[in-house]
Design a protein around this nucleic acid. Structure first.
Lengths: 166, 166
DNA sequence: CTAGCATATGGAGAAGCTCTCCGGATAGCG
DNA sequence: CGCTATCCGGAGAGCTTCTCCATATGCTAG
């Protein structure tokens, strides 16, 4: 990749991160391009869809999330470990304004690696806690709840996470 | 209200019901107006926002839902009753393509009556089943899950509802 | 039965969105 | 330094939501 292209790509990702954090689902690709100081065409060449853009952002975040999850495997209390983990997943989902993460949980193949990593940790933690729940289902529910908690004023994320049987 | 206005209002609601069922969140108010055979202005005068339109539709549906819930209060197995009820709520949410219902669960004051009715039944059923969970939280989670199950291929709604502790 | 008015209509249009296209600029190699 | 493959920007097509107001029509009072 040419150096100017790389530079633009980085700036677009930074702008997108700001835009998604600020406007959530109301994010506008137009505005992202403006923030990044590039034309719309440039944005769309680098990221053919809004989803591709999210994939790039989330891929970064998931690395940190995965490290946290791996560390939790050594937690003395397995039941507490899975609870901590799901709270971390929910927080990650919230950081990207929920909707986003939910749509991508089982989304495109581009995110397959990310999802596999998160599911792997979830499975291990569920197993250690003696749970029979499917990791995929649990993750979907957690993401859905994270998303809902932002859209329903007065809804406490922790309290709703308590309602998930694991 | 003038009779022609009433007629248009009815036709708009019918068109909206069809459009939402067909296109889910991708529903277009423009298309609803076309389907109903009215101008965009007419649609917006009757329903200032997409939400107002949904309120009208959902208000109808909730009446039937509420009747079902009330009947469940006589169910011999309280634990089964609450499970049946939540499945019915999820189904109702799915009928309106999830997103919709989730956004409205604690939404505008226009839907307060509906919400109160549903919450009342939920509280009674939870109480009878000896649960300490907050009805609001349970409903939010159920709606979120219903929504998520449509957006994540392979996610089974019943299996995810099993994960909710009540 | 009709006349007049309050009420309702519809579609053009403003503003914003996503996404495409391509003439022109430029990075970086030889 | 010059040439070319690569990359850029923004105009524009075709959507969208939502507003405005000249026109049409239901309803009522006479």
């Amino acid at each position: 990749m040419r150096s100017d292209a790389q530079q633009n790509r980085d700036r677009i990702i930074a702008a997108a991160r700001a835009e998604f954090t600020e406007h959530g689902d109301g994010a506008s690709l137009n505005r992202i391009a403006q923030r990044a100081g590039v034309g719309a065409g440039t944005l769309y060449r680098h990221f053919p869809s809004a989803q591709a853009l999210l994939v790039a952002i989330i891929t970064d975040d998931v690395a940190a999330l995965h490290a946290h999850g791996t560390a939790l495997l050594d937690h003395p209390d397995p039941a507490q470990a899975i609870r901590n983990w799901l709270a971390a997943v929910a927080l990650h989902a919230t950081a990207m304004r929920g909707l986003v993460a939910t749509e991508l949980v089982r989304g495109g193949p581009a995110l397959a690696d990310c999802h596999r990593a998160v599911r792997g940790v979830t499975e291990a933690l569920l197993d250690r806690a003696g749970s029979a729940a499917r990791a995929d289902d649990v993750l979907t529910v957690v993401n859905a709840v994270a998303w809902a908690s932002e859209h329903t004023p007065g809804a406490g994320l922790p309290r709703m996470l308590e309602l998930i049987r694991v």
